[in-house]
Design a protein around this nucleic acid. Structure first.
Lengths: 121, 121
DNA sequence: GTACCCCTGCTACAGCTGTAGTAAAACATG
DNA sequence: CATGTTTTACTACAGCTGTAGCAGGGGTAC
């Protein structure tokens, strides 16, 4: 499942705390957006319609919960990036990450550490 | 500069060989798409308009060359992914990559090797 | 029970994206 | 040159995305 930018914002809010009402989402977004309440509602409706969220009425308010996990969504997103921009294979992406001049020494350190740990598993 | 899926396809063709005519691009795409010639033309025109390509007429045919590098485009794409899907920071992405269960042993090996090499520099 | 506020279900609408058609100019070729 | 082939410039149009308005139902506080 591919998510658009606005959809990611909403899903991020819901993964952070579920179930969430539209108002919860709006509040969670804080000053990350200047959306109207109804904009959030529209996004939630679209996400529910495409199967990313479930809706359940509690009193008169709809509560939303994720039907897809953050992991799944991330996997799709990474896969999409890989296909569009890196010829579909993994190595060029990693190559790019480690050689990107925007990568700070701290980031590089993080990378090394993570890899080392993953090797230990 | 963010590129859409179709734009990536065209840019990939042009990075592979520039300058390219619309027909060159279409041929380069091969069976990756079933686009009409005019679809390629439309994409090229849009990319030129948004400053990703330059156009120069050779005889009666327009030749296109990249104005942005693959590196730049990749950087933007990775940045976009990072922001939408990984809270904007690098570590979670790498964390995800190394722990992704879709990652083959070969990929993991690649990752380790690349990191090790980058450490050597 | 009326005035207010919140929530819901619709509808709207512009800009972007994918995909292409058409008309007309330019060229190639017998 | 007349005809077929390429190429170009322009236009089209549906679906997706971002962004929101409106009308009406329900609760709440007097």
């Amino acid at each position: 499942m591919q998510l658009s930018e606005a959809e990611w914002k909403v899903m991020n809010a819901i993964w952070a705390e579920a179930p969430s009402s539209a108002r919860d989402v709006l509040e969670h977004l804080g000053d990350e957006t200047t959306w109207a309440y109804t904009t959030v509602k529209t996004m939630l409706a679209r996400l529910a319609e495409k199967g990313a969220l479930s809706v359940r009425k509690r009193a008169n308010t709809s509560m939303y919960e994720p039907l897809i996990s953050r992991e799944e969504a991330r996997r799709s997103a990474v896969k999409g990036l890989l296909e569009r921009a890196f010829g579909g294979s993994f190595a060029p992406l990693v190559q790019f990450l480690v050689s990107d001049r925007d990568l700070s020494p701290a980031d590089r350190k993080t990378l090394e550490k993570l890899i080392a740990e993953s090797g230990d598993k």
